[in-house]
Nucleic acid binder design. Structure first.
Lengths: 287, 287
DNA sequence: GCCCTGTCATACCCGGCGAGTATCACGGAG
DNA sequence: CTCCGTGATACTCGCCGGGTATGACAGGGC
């Protein structure tokens, strides 16, 4: 009567994302008619129009937009419950039901802090096993929400901490990484404006949720690729200070005076109530 | 295969809370055997033991504790999705699908700030209709989580802001409310220790989630009751400054020098993306 | 020792509903 | 006017969620 089933939410989210019953049904691995019926039933039960059926496709009503947002959150919470329960029961750990924490870290972020944290925590009594899960550029938040991770290292202002509890761990400046020998590389300090608009050295572009921001620079997927392109004098990049750790001889780092500082936080879902997590956070804040 | 249904979560949460299949089944309005089977199925699908079936009742395993916490969160998110969608579609508003915000306020909290906020917001262009929802002593958080409310006025350190976005609105001190004529009422200032242990004037006790904290003071349910008991010289109470607004002649307020300040925040679910909400927050921070 | 009680699990049956196939209604492009 | 492509409807079928009856088992009173 008033309780949504996750099946219904899955169906609706698929339709709302595809805006097309046929494609949504295909994605869900089912036929189109039962999907249509299910959505109609959902609309009847909620007493609300979710989709505007025009000729040539469908569009979301205001209520539909709301259910898309809230439904995604609910689905995330549900899969998170399943994942964390499996993990707590040791269903996926070969060495028995050992206590385990999954830590999401941006792939290619500073290893120094991470090493210190893991070593210090391992030295604690009763410490859990830590699995480090490399994450895409900005998806640590998703991973915490859908239960793939229990805790994450996040970097303000790139990651949003909204909805999580967090503790500040470290603040650092940002640098421009230029090809050694480039005229600008001789400077002691630069501004963002200096490097954002170099005609012969357009800034590289990373994929943000599957799509690239517009601009003249090359599209890159990983750090090695980027390092190579910089070394070849084809591009430049802006990184936090700690990126100095992986620079090559062909790279030169120049501090950016006016770039916003990058603050590394340790973050976790606000409702977490795990002893192992509490221990890790305690260790982290003492570093 | 790996997607929990809301029904399963409801069932498990009921059993985990009752720790008794029969009572849980009764609460769910069903017979006990199908409930037993559903839980077994759930355990098989997760590949994890959730309950320890001892003689004489059941107890939770570590995985069971995890699923209880996470499952409650997921259920809250699901019912929140349903409630907010209905509201966005105008299913419950008689005057058509008008844009509406539900604001949770602790019953009996300062009306002054609330009035200013509502008036200022109503004067904004394109403002939504605001429904003020009085909440129990500390349940604003629950209301935001399960969708009964969209936004709340919360009071640190009484409410936990964990998991919400918030903006600070006001800070005030705390006062002791004593019967006029009581010896302590003559003081210009008191400390917490002074009022927490008066032999003839034990502090009143409010219900916290259905149960009362231990102590000698009277158990009270609402503010009128409390006001009466203070006026009769039977008890005393500690409140934020703004409580002065409802004092009687028989009450005397004395500032508490060492009581922690009370900070009023406006708080909302971190993932909210509503224009009406954004407008209300903007108005609130400008007060 | 006995039986009674309270607990959760098992056996078996039934009905509803979720899902499939076939088809319709309708609008746009040619 | 016909042919697509869209979502909606009609009808059937089989699974599974739920009910009742009963079993297995451990404690407690006598």
């Amino acid at each position: 009567m008033d309780t949504l089933e996750t099946r219904e939410l899955r169906y609706f989210v698929a339709v709302a994302e595809e805006l097309h019953f046929g494609r949504a049904a295909e994605r869900l691995g089912m036929a189109q008619p039962p999907l249509s019926r299910a959505i109609q039933q959902l609309e009847r039960r909620l007493g609300v129009l979710l989709l505007e059926r025009n000729r040539r496709g469908v569009s979301l009503t205001a209520a539909g937009e709301m259910l898309l947002h809230e439904g995604r959150a609910a689905l995330d919470a549900t899969t998170a419950a399943a994942r964390r329960t499996r993990r707590a029961g040791g269903a996926d750990s070969p060495g028995g039901p050992r206590n385990r924490l999954v830590l999401a870290v941006k792939a290619g972020a500073s290893h120094e802090l991470l090493h210190k944290l893991i070593d210090a925590y391992a030295a604690e009594p009763d410490s859990a096993e830590i699995e480090v899960l490399p994450s895409g550029t900005c998806e640590q938040g998703e991973m915490l929400r859908d239960g793939r991770a229990d805790v994450a290292l996040m970097h303000k202002p790139f990651n949003s901490l909204a909805g999580f509890d967090s503790e500040e761990l470290m603040t650092e400046g940002q640098i421009a990484i230029l090809p050694t020998g480039h005229p600008l590389a001789a400077h002691k300090s630069l501004s963002l404006a200096d490097v954002s608009d170099i005609p012969d050295l357009p800034l590289a572009r990373w994929a943000h949720d599957g799509t690239y921001p517009p601009g003249p620079g090359p599209e890159i997927h990983d750090q090695t690729q980027l390092a190579q392109l910089i070394a070849l004098g084809r591009t430049a990049a802006v990184f936090p200070d700690s990126a100095r750790a992986w620079l090559w001889a062909e790279h030169t780092a120049v501090p950016l005076a006016d770039a916003p500082p990058v603050v590394t936080h340790i973050a976790w879902p606000a409702h977490s109530r795990s002893l192992a997590l509490a221990g890790l956070i305690r260790t982290a804040t003492r570093l």
